[in-house]
Design a protein around this nucleic acid. Structure first.
Length: 295
RNA sequence: GAAGGACUGGUC
């Protein structure tokens, strides 16, 4: 990285706001918030003012790491510098808080942004609904969903998938299937929808229904993908139905789907647990030849 | 119709 830095200086290239923000974003996603803050200080020393994007990045990362005092300070600094937080800023922070497990704080922040007359968009609602579902607070999530509809923000495919996932986690796959049947009027189910339901059905032991759903959706809407098959194959291996799993794996290849590292991990783990070392070896060799697709 | 920040599913 230092090499690149020097090279840029030699060529007389001045890093701009975009460049700095890219760096900040990288350090934030790597969880190195301190380094990201240093980058922001450096911007200031070079007379480049951090903009809304720079602040939003850091704020989300600070929330996610539980550095809430620092986040508050930075937020105030942002306001002091006359940079207004927007819906993305708030949504990011809400998401960070949810990942932290502080859903109560997340809801507070949601209310705060409404007070500040920032209109939550569908992504904001989706983030909060997902956070509440994952915290096991489905009823609260459902209230937010109702609020979303009241405010005229129509649930999109991500909203549906999020809610379906929440229901499946609760073991309410029967209700999830009813929602699925009713969603076609509003949105078009995608492969995420299918894999979510397939996972839910498998969790309850309905492998046959899961497979059928995938089959129907593949034929009618071409909505299948790597992840969906990985769920199905993994479930059959867990049920020690190696024959079925291997057939699905062949089908997977025939469809032209491309296995990645998760696909192979699932296969290797499952086959080894079934004591099918020979089959595992064969697939492993295939991977060594073609290589898993990059994540 | 390109853009540096926010949302959903797969193994461990």
């Amino acid at each position: 990285a230092m090499g690149l830095w020097e090279e840029m200086n030699m060529k007389g290239l001045e890093p701009d706001v975009f460049f700095y923000n890219t760096l900040i974003s990288c350090f934030c996603t790597k969880g190195n918030v301190d380094r990201a803050k240093e980058i922001m200080s450096e911007m200031l020393s070079k007379k480049i003012s951090p903009d809304r994007v720079a602040y939003s990045c850091l704020l989300r990362a600070l929330c996610q790491k539980g550095k809430l005092k620092e986040a508050k300070q930075l937020f105030n600094e942002m306001i002091r510098n006359r940079i207004q937080p927007d819906v993305v800023t708030f949504t990011g922070m809400i998401g960070g808080l949810c990942q932290l497990g502080r859903t109560k704080k997340a809801v507070e922040l949601f209310n705060f942004m409404v007070e500040k007359r920032q209109d939550p968009n569908s992504t904001t609602y989706n983030v909060l609904i997902d956070g509440l579902c994952k915290a096991g607070l489905f009823n609260d999530a459902f209230k937010i969903l109702e609020m979303m509809v009241e405010k005229g923000k129509n649930p999109n495919i991500v909203t549906y998938n999020t809610v379906l996932s929440g229901l499946c986690d609760l073991g309410k796959v029967d209700i999830a299937m009813k929602v699925f049947d009713s969603m076609f009027n509003n949105v078009k189910p995608d492969s995420w929808t299918v894999s979510t339901l397939v996972k839910g059905l498998c969790k309850e032991g309905h492998l046959d229904k899961a497979e059928k759903l995938n089959r129907v959706m593949t034929e009618q809407n071409k909505t299948t993908d790597n992840a969906t098959y990985t769920v199905l194959i993994g479930a059959y291996l867990k049920a020690r139905n190696v024959r079925k799993a291997v057939n699905l794996w062949k089908e997977f290849i025939q469809l032209g789907l491309v296995p990645d590292s998760t696909t192979y991990s699932t296969l290797m783990n499952g086959l080894c647990r079934c004591n099918c070392m020979n089959i595992a070896k064969g697939i492993f060799n295939k991977m060594r030849i073609s290589g898993p697709s990059p994540t």
